[in-house]
Design a binder for these strands. Sequence first.
DNA 1: TCAAAACTTGACCAAATGGTCAGATTTATG
DNA 2: CATAAATCTGACCATTTGGTCAAGTTTTGA
Lengths: 212, 212
Amino acid sequence: MKNNKPRTSLRASRQVNEQKILQAAEREFEAHGYGGARMQRIADLAGLPKANVHYYFPNKQDLYIAVLSGIVDLWNSAFGDIHVDDDPAAMIESYIRAKLRYSQQNARAARIFTMEMIQGAPHLHDYLTDVTNKWIEQRVAVLNAWKEQGKVGEIDPYHLIFMIWSTTQYYADYHAQIALIFEKSVLDETDFEQFANSLVDIILTGCRINKS
Amino acid sequence: MKNNKPRTSLRASRQVNEQKILQAAEREFEAHGYGGARMQRIADLAGLPKANVHYYFPNKQDLYIAVLSGIVDLWNSAFGDIHVDDDPAAMIESYIRAKLRYSQQNARAARIFTMEMIQGAPHLHDYLTDVTNKWIEQRVAVLNAWKEQGKVGEIDPYHLIFMIWSTTQYYADYHAQIALIFEKSVLDETDFEQFANSLVDIILTGCRINKS
DNA sequence: TCAAAACTTGACCAAATGGTCAGATTTATG
DNA sequence: CATAAATCTGACCATTTGGTCAAGTTTTGA
């Protein structure tokens, strides 16, 4: 077929192929879920023989976990911390926008993550307890501090966070429905800009934030 | 159980078995998605031989569509209309509460619906265009009328609806994560009461509704 | 009472699926 | 250049899967 490539080092080839496979797998898992994904289709999508896929990822579960890990790592590194002395309005707004941008740019990953959660996170149950809990406790502490300082209204920090997660996630998960409603085949940057504006507006107002 | 059945009519038996199968299928599709669902497991869950399942539902796709139809029908019949002369605050509040209650009581259905949407609604694409669009246009019209009458603030009706859908759906889809965060194995009525209160508070405030 | 219709089910089956493997080829390295 | 290590791949396989079927049993309705 195409391999006129005398210059590829073994290591480079490994990295390229693993990447091809992971991308193909992401598409396949997104479209069919773990159980419905087919190794043969992943191989075809990646443009490699199935046996070659198994050379890099011994079995389906290993491949799926590799995809999930990538998603979770990306997620964990994507959003910065917040601190008590930050400006609430600015921080909440920037978090909403960052999270929504993430939902747009990593929509596939976001969707796979939701499917995994729906099924009770069978493949990352213990991993989540640790990371998510620490993440959320830190934000809740800051939000509570803001509340005590009268910088934000009497809102429940957990539910505020859930609200941000759910709304931003929604634009990735329900993209088919939303595109249908807006009579578009794809949602672009501009659409997401609109969504972000609406979300920021309603949520900031809803939190009764005293702008400093 | 109830069927000490020398007296079961054929029709009654049909209804009972179809129901058993549909319930089992709902669990199976929820836990494994369409592609990962196994007819044998559905049969076992329903307590029937697999061949008997195929007697009522000739193939997997028919069974899946039957489950989905049930979900969509339920969804369509679950929430009443709204009218221009209704009280905005009361209507939005009652819709949020109704939708959240639905997410709790029909959590399995809600999750299957999300999975179907994530995958681009391959099994109900045309069905959705019609029903959802009509549903949403009606609400958007009313919300816009309210806006013009100054009863609600300058919010985008579509995004308000998406916000309600996403947040209420979240408590069904991400139940595993939420239960983990709250260190509970199941979320009960009381939890949902709390969620509802928070949602209603933030959203009504966020919409700057002038209470009449 | 009895034949037709509806229902039940164990035994099967063809196709698909995840995964293996041995041998070939390519790349690295002393 | 030679040998080892890494990569590639067609052919293959055991198992699983959705689905069928023919032979039964039960219910219906006249």
